[in-house]
Design a binder for these strands. Structure first.
Lengths: 340, 340
DNA sequence: TTGTAGGCGTTATCAT
DNA sequence: ATGATAACGCCTACAA
């Protein structure tokens, strides 16, 4: 028993396959006699006909599928974004092909190639690197594309990101309000747009509050990870610089600090305050509960998907970028510095 | 400029498309003159020819793609499993289509239909429900399928799961060793195979240690979630039953308990010990760090993918199931009961 | 060893 | 309004 094809439907309905095709497609249905259409639909129903998307793609060179390039699914930041994207896409009749690149450029290239050859109609890319020849090339080829959480140097692409300036501003203002004056920044990788923009926002925020920007107080992490956060903090502590609070590039980096606090017998927040970025899940249950800057993850996904659909419909429209407002979440990892 | 096709390659190489096809496919390459093959490969290289998988799929009714059905990507349990699956699959020349069902049966059905119509060659399903007519039907249709983390009633399918018996046994033994005698179980949904098997394992473990199995000490959670864990624990506390330790169905349920501890002024572990299951990320940074039963998530993915590849190759082979051994991770959420 | 021809299931175009 | 035809890109008997 083979799966029914359009021919089977046509045979039962007593019409030509082309007519059946027209009757089945809502857009072309008006072209066919209402009575005939009904017959066809009934026939299709009776044998449980489902159009074959592969054959359709081959013919139309479209796929109703978009590719979703995620650097690391285990990063809790991404799943909610994926969900937002899927919800919008599914509602519009599209499916998302999720691929994981593990932050590996080669793997990313292979994966994107594979998506392309499957005729995806667009790409939503949450890639890490600022410098990204492949994306430049794809864009030149007219592939509809939206960036999420990241930007690529010299590429005027639609993107959806959290407003890092505002977010870091909120974090610094909060610490300053608590009385901190020597504030360190464990910056994300400066090869990523987010890493750069948060570091810049940090410097600006210090100036806004009339604090000196001591370059020794910013250390770059190699990755957006706990372990790199820990390494960076150790380096900072070993340097002998004094400080009472840390603005971490993201929550993972902030959590890495917890390990170092334990190693060095530092108490958070009494000896050291730390604030993260992203509001990943379960921060409220950490020891201590981590203060952070929350970004609307699901909405980022939603906006990204909308932007992509727009771009697919109107390829020549000028690139718009969307900045979503973050908000401060104060928990117990930030407190006034212990006076002594 | 359109993407090159087989015809273009053939044209350049000065051979017929059929010959080019044979030359490009490693399996049929021996059929063609070595010199000709070289010419074809060079031609393909020169114009960056990539076979169109859609056309190939249409012809061969295969896709080198398998479908991966995940109930909830937000659950930190799944990403590492996905990674294990992808690594094995990619190495074997397959790609994985990940879909998210949100635990919604309708959505799951749509998603699986969509995967099927895209000619996926097999399915790895991490679905929640024990009772699952759709899977039964697919299996009857001969769709290669492997279950991950779950089983389906009355379906003899290959599956990869953690050994719940052993895992729960470890947890209970640990608590008993600490001196607990009244131990509660916040069970996962009894509509899931894991929920049932852990609950059964819990009862058995109590008996093994000569403890009475007081039915009042087991409460079922509606979902595998923090909030449901909290609800269940409140119910248990309100019932007035006394107990000093909790075996939670999984880590999320255990974390839900933390909220209730805070509400009720209970101190963990002094007033109440709790142990989870799964070893999701960041448990070591919780307040208190959560003791749990670790399962080899990545390996579960690896084994599942291998099992699926085996099944695709040898459809008639008898279903094998793999049970992976868990291990105990003791942290600070479990301690001897406070004597008073 | 290579070429020929037909078809996978669908849809776009042309003719009726 | 419907039918006929061809084509999307590839693969595979079969023939040469």
């Amino acid at each position: 028993m083979t799966t029914p094809t359009l021919r089977d439907v046509a045979l039962i309905a007593g019409v030509h396959p082309a007519t059946a095709s027209r009757a089945l497609n809502p857009l072309t249905r008006p072209q066919v006699n209402a009575e005939t259409a009904r017959k066809v639909l009934r026939a299709a129903e009776s044998i449980g006909y489902q159009p074959n998307p592969i054959a359709r793609s081959l013919k139309t060179a479209r796929s109703s599928t978009i590719g979703l390039v995620i650097p690391d699914l285990t990063n809790p930041l991404f799943p909610p974004i994926v969900r937002g994207i899927e919800d919008v896409l599914n509602a519009a009749g599209y499916n998302a092909w999720i691929v994981n690149t593990d932050n590996d450029p080669d793997r990313e290239e292979t994966q994107i190639e594979s998506l392309r050859s499957r005729q995806v109609e667009g790409l939503i890319v949450a890639t890490a690197r600022r410098n990204h020849p492949l994306l430049v090339q794809l864009h030149a080829q007219g592939v509809p594309m939206v960036l999420v959480n990241r930007r690529v140097d010299g590429l005027d692409l639609p993107s959806v990101t959290a407003d890092d300036d505002t977010g870091i501003g909120l974090a610094v203002a909060h610490l300053v309000e608590q009385g901190h004056t020597r504030i360190a920044h464990l910056a994300g990788p400066q090869g990523t747009s987010t890493g750069v923009s948060r570091a810049r926002a940090f410097r600006n925020a210090l100036l806004d509050h009339g604090l000196v920007n001591d370059a020794a107080l910013t250390v770059e992490c190699g990755y957006w990870s706990e372990s790199e956060g820990a390494i960076a903090l150790r380096k900072l502590l070993d340097s002998g610089t004094t400080f009472t609070a840390i603005v971490a590039g993201n929550d993972l980096i902030a959590l890495g600090c917890y390990d170092v606090f334990a190693e060095r017998g530092l108490h958070c927040p009494d000896d050291m305050s730390v604030i993260g970025f992203n509001e990943m899940p379960f921060l409220d249950k950490m020891r201590p509960p981590l203060s952070t800057v929350a970004i609307p993850q699901y909405d980022i996904g939603v906006e990204a998907a909308r932007l992509l659909l727009d771009t697919i419909e109107e390829p020549d429209r000028h690139a718009r970028s969307i900045l979503l407002a973050p908000s401060l979440v104060v928990r117990s990892s930030t407190a006034p510095p212990l006076s002594r």
